[in-house]
Amino acid sequence: MGSVTSIQENCEEQAQDPEAPPLTRALARAQQLYNIAILNFGVADLRSITRLLRCSLSGTYKVDRQTLVVLGGAVIYVAMPCDAIPDFIPVLGYLDDAYILRQAITTCLSEIRRFQQWEEEQQRNK
């Protein structure tokens, strides 16, 4: 694993790359938020959300509609360039994104944990 500075630089590049998939850009922006210590959840939860959404959309993992809407909406909000507080404002620009992500994860934490357990079971069964 690289230094915090190199990880942050990589995330900043991915977040600004218009060619990157939207989920990758959203995850990179969420990582930026995490690196500036606004959020209090782990990067593993952010990555799990991305995988949960992909598995749900592909039909390999069933998730209730409310969870899908909350997590999908949070990812879309983070990926959108237009926010309640523009992102070009240092620190404050990410505050609304951090709040939305934090609320989404808090709301759906039990489903995220169930998904992580499901993934572990899938790995053991291979």
Rank of each mutant, 00 (worst) to 15 (best):
S58C: 10
T67R: 05
S56C: 10
V69D: 10
E19R: 15
L33R: 11
E12P: 02
V43C: 01
C55T: 02
R54K: 10
I38S: 13
F41T: 12
E19N: 14
Q14G: 00
R65N: 12
I49M: 15
I38A: 14
P21Y: 03
Q31S: 12
T50W: 01
Q66H: 04
A74C: 07
A28D: 01
A15H: 01
Q66M: 02
L57N: 12
R29D: 00
I36S: 10
R65Q: 13
D45S: 12
L68Y: 06
C55M: 08
Y61T: 05
T67L: 07
S58T: 14
I38K: 14
L68V: 06
K62D: 09
I76N: 10
M80G: 06
L52V: 03
T24I: 09
E12R: 11
A44H: 04
Q32I: 14
R29G: 04
Y34N: 14
S56E: 12
G73R: 02
A79S: 07
I38N: 08
Q32T: 02
L53N: 01
L46W: 01
Q14L: 15
L71P: 01
A30Q: 05
E12Y: 00
I49G: 02
Q66R: 07
V75Y: 08
E19A: 12
M80C: 14
M80A: 15
F41R: 13
A15R: 06
A79Q: 11
R47H: 01
Q66P: 00
E13Y: 05
D64A: 09
I49W: 01
L52E: 00
V75F: 08
L23E: 11
T67Y: 03
V43L: 15
Q16M: 13
N40G: 15
V75N: 00
R51I: 01
A15Y: 04
T50R: 11
E19F: 08
P81V: 05
A79V: 04
V63W: 02
R51C: 03
A74S: 09
R65T: 12
Q14D: 10
V43E: 09
L27M: 04
R65A: 06
I36F: 15
I36A: 07
R29Y: 05
P81C: 06
Q31I: 03
V70P: 05
Q16W: 05
A79I: 00
A30G: 14
A20S: 14
Q16H: 05
A28W: 04
N10K: 01
N40M: 10
I36H: 09
L33I: 15
D64H: 10
A44N: 06
C11K: 02
M80D: 15
D45I: 00
T60E: 15
F41V: 12
T50H: 06
T60V: 13
G72Y: 04
I76Q: 12
Y61L: 00
A20V: 02
C55I: 00
R25E: 09
A44T: 07
N35E: 13
P81D: 15
E12H: 02
S58K: 11
S58I: 08
Y61K: 00
L33W: 10
K62A: 13
N40K: 14
D64S: 06
A44E: 15
D45V: 06
S48I: 02
R54Y: 00
C82F: 13
A26T: 04
L39H: 12
A28F: 04
D64L: 07
R25C: 05
A26V: 05
D64M: 08
C55F: 04
V75R: 00
D64G: 09
L46F: 02
D64Q: 09
